[in-house]
Write a protein that binds this DNA or RNA. Structure first.
Lengths: 221, 221
DNA sequence: TTTTGCATTTTTGAATGCAAAATTTGGAAT
DNA sequence: ATTCCAAATTTTGCATTCAAAAATGCAAAA
C-alpha cells in the first residue's frame, strides 16, 4: 500500500467519524486493520496532523482533532474567502459545458429539496460548490479548499434544518447559478460569502456539539 | 530533537535554498547533519511534501519541489485571496496599538526605501504584511498564509526592481496603511489585491528562473 | 475510605536491519 | 565509438527491535 493511500484511508476513517473527535488513535489496532507496521502509520499520522485532522501530543500519542467554536469560526471565515476567490476565478475561466453541468446538478439538487431528501440535497450542494472550485482552475486553491472543508465537515455538526432556512438556501443557490451563468465574478463572490456566512451562523448557533458519541443523523426541525 | 523541530530545520534548509529546487534530497547526509536516523527524517519529509515544499517520487526518493510558472501563478492568486481576506478581517479587529505598530514599521520601511536598501526594505515589507495577517486574528488563515508565502519565497525569484516599480510599491503601501487607519476593509482588500497582482506580474514577467545554482542576490536594475 | 508513593506494564519515539526497487557500472556486440 | 544488456551497487520503503517516557495498578499510610 502506497503512502498516499495510507493517508487517504486514515483520513476517511476520521471523516467518517469512526474515530470521534478527541478520541485517542489506537496505533496498534489501526496497524492490524490496515495491515501495515507502525512506521508508515506514524508517517501518515504526522501528515494528517499537519493538515489539522490529528493532534499530536509528544510522548502521549495522537488524538483525532477536536474543534473549538473558535476553530470552527476561523475555518468558516477562511472557507468564505476561498470560495469567494474561487467564484471570481471560475467566472473568468469556466466553460459553457461546465456551466451546463452545474445547472444540471443544481436542478437535481432542487428536486431533492422538493422531495425533502436532505441527505441527497447536501450531497448535491457539495458537488456544486466543488464544481465551482474546480472551475477556478487553480489546484493550489482546490487543495486548500478540500483541506478546510474536510476539517469543517469533520466537526459533524448537525444543524437542525428548518423549512425557512432550507428554502432560503435554495434561493441563494439560484442566485449562485445565475451569477455563474452571467459570469458575474464579483456578484458570485458576494453571494457565496453570504451563503457561507448564513451557514456558519446556523452551525455556531446550533453549537455543533462535538461530543464523542455524537449522533450523525441529519435532522429536519 | 522534537518532531516539529526536525520539520522546521529541514524547512529552513529548503527555504534558504541550501538544497535548490529540483535537487535530490540526500537522506543519509541530512541524517548525519541533523544527527537523527532515517525514520524521523522521513516523517518530516512526508510532512513537508504535504506542505508542497518537497516532492516525493515513489521508490525514487524525494526532491526539493520545483515550481512551474503555473504553480507560481496559482500560488499568487491564492495569496491574493488570503491577504484580501486578512485585510478585511484586520480592519474589523485591529487595535489602535497594532495600527500604531504597523505605522512605525511602515515609516521604517519608507526610510529603507529612501536609503536604497532593498534587502531591509523587503524585510520591512514582509513584516507589515505579516502584521496585517496576524491582526486578522484567525490562526487558520495565518497558517495557510505562512505556507503559501513560504512556497512562493522558496522560488527565489529575483525581480530586477526598477526605480519606478519601487516608487509605485511604496505608494501602494501608503494606501495600505491609510486604509488600515480608516479601517476600510473593502478598500484595503482591493489595494492588497492590486499590490500582489503587480508583484505577480513582475515575478512572472521576469521568469523567476528556478535554476539549480541560481543566484540569490537582490538586484536593482 | 481516600490518597500517596512505588513498581510494573504499556506505549511512544527512534535506530537498525532486511527485502525490493532503481540506478549505476562494466563489458560485449554491433 | 556507440549502444545495449546484465551484474553490482546504492537507495528506498517497511518491519522489527530497543530505549525512554507515560500510564496503570497496587499496596501502604493517613
Amino acid at each position: 500500500m502506497l503512502h498516499e493511500e495510507v493517508v487517504g484511508r486514515i483520513r476517511a476513517i476520521l471523516l467518517d467519524g469512526e474515530i470521534p473527535p478527541g478520541a485517542r488513535i489506537p496505533e496498534r489496532e489501526l496497524c492490524e486493520r490496515l495491515e501495515i507496521s507502525r512506521t508508515p502509520l506514524r508517517e501518515a499520522l504526522k501528515v494528517l496532523a499537519a493538515e489539522g485532522l490529528v493532534q499530536l501530543l509528544p510522548h502521549r500519542g495522537s488524538r483525532a482533532a477536536k474543534l473549538t467554536d473558535k476553530d470552527m469560526r476561523d475555518l468558516f471565515e477562511v472557507c468564505q474567502g476561498l470560495e469567494a476567490l474561487a467564484g471570481e476565478l471560475a467566472c473568468e475561466r469556466i466553460t459553457d459545458a461546465e456551466i451546463d453541468a452545474i445547472a444540471t446538478a443544481h436542478a437535481a439538487m432542487v428536486q431533492h429539496y422538493r422531495d425533502g431528501d436532505l441527505i441527497q440535497y447536501y450531497r448535491g450542494n457539495r458537488a456544486i460548490h466543488e464544481a465551482i472550485v474546480t472551475a477556478a482552475g487553480n489546484p493550489v486553491l482546490a487543495g486548500l479548499y478540500t483541506s478546510v472543508t474536510a476539517r469543517i465537515r469533520r466537526a459533524r455538526y448537525v444543524t437542525p434544518m428548518t423549512p425557512q432556512r432550507w428554502a432560503f438556501a435554495v434561493k441563494e443557490h439560484e442566485a449562485i447559478l445565475n451569477a455563474l451563468q452571467r459570469r458575474d465574478g464579483v456578484g458570485l463572490a458576494h453571494i457565496l460569502r453570504a451563503h457561507l456566512r448564513h451557514k456558519r451562523e446556523e452551525v455556531l448557533q446550533a453549537g455543533f456539539a462535538e461530543t464523542e458519541g455524537g449522533d450523525l443523523t441529519l435532522r429536519i426541525a
